[in-house]
Design a protein around this nucleic acid. Structure first.
Lengths: 117, 117
DNA sequence: AGTAAATGACGCACCTTTTTGTAACCACGA
DNA sequence: TCGTGGTTACAAAAAGGTGCGTCATTTACT
C-alpha cells in the first residue's frame, strides 16, 4: 500500500522524479535522443532491469516518449516530451541550489560542527 | 554502498530531497517552527524512526535547523534554514509543473483508465 | 514521604516489506 | 552466435515499521 490518496502534488511528483535515476536519465535525455543501450552506457551503474522500469515510469508520467522502430535487431528511441523538457530547468535549478548552498554543508568533511548556543 | 563519488549535483541533491518525506516535511516546515510531535501530527503516516532519520538527513544537508531546549520533557524545535527557504520555491515549482502537466497523465484519478489506442 | 506514572524526542533491536541485482530466457535477423 | 530491448523468477540488500528502553523532571497516587 503506497498510494494513500496523495492530494499533495509535491508528494505525487516525488513518486516519479524521486530516486537515484530519474534525474540522471532526464539529464542525459536532454542531450537528445537516446537508445536503451546509450542510456546504459551513460550511467553504467544502473542495471538493465532498473533502466526499463525507470523508463517505463517516466513514460507513464509523460516525461519521456518511447519510439519503437521495427527492424533487425529491434531499435527503440527515447526522448523527452514537452513536459519533460519543461522539467529540465526545474531539476537544473535544484542542482544549482545544491551547489550554491554547498558552503553550508561540510563541503567535504563530516565533522560535527558544534554550534555553541 | 550508495555513494560512488557522485560528481553530478542532481544525483547529490536527489539523495537528500528525494523520497516520500523530505518534500512534505519542508512543506510543513515552511509554515513556521515545528516540533517533533507537530510534524508527526502533520503527517501521521510517518513513523518516529523515519521522522528522526529524515530530519537528521535534512539537518546534515543544511536544510533544517534543530534547536534543542533543556527542560523536563525535553523540547526540540525545527526550522528551515536560509538554504531550506531557498529550496521551497524550487519544490513548489515542481509541484506546479506536476499539476500543469497533469493533462498528459490520467488527470487525477487512479482508475485504470484504459486509453484505447 | 515514597513510589509510580507521564512527558518529548529520540536510540536500538528485531522483523517485515519493498526495492534492486543477477541471471536466464525470449524474439528476430545479420 | 551475437546484439537489441525486454520479461520473468529468484535472491540479496535496503528501507521501513513496531515496540521497548532512556533521560530528567514534574505530577499523581497511596
Amino acid at each position: 500500500m503506497k498510494d494513500l490518496v496523495s492530494r499533495c502534488p509535491i508528494e505525487e511528483v516525488m513518486q516519479v522524479v524521486s530516486g537515484r535515476w530519474p534525474g540522471l536519465l532526464i539529464y542525459y535525455l536532454k542531450q537528445g535522443t537516446k537508445r536503451f543501450s546509450d542510456l546504459r552506457r551513460d550511467n553504467p551503474a544502473i542495471s538493465h532491469k532498473m533502466l526499463t522500469m525507470e523508463l517505463r515510469k517516466l513514460e507513464d508520467a509523460g516525461i519521456v516518449a518511447r519510439s519503437e522502430f521495427e527492424g533487425y535487431p529491434l531499435r527503440v528511441e527515447y526522448d523527452l516530451t514537452p513536459a519533460g523538457l519543461q522539467l529540465v530547468p526545474l531539476l537544473d535549478a535544484l542542482g544549482s541550489w545544491w551547489d550554491a548552498t554547498a558552503a553550508g554543508r561540510g563541503h567535504g568533511s563530516t565533522l560535527p560542527v558544534e554550534v555553541t548556543e
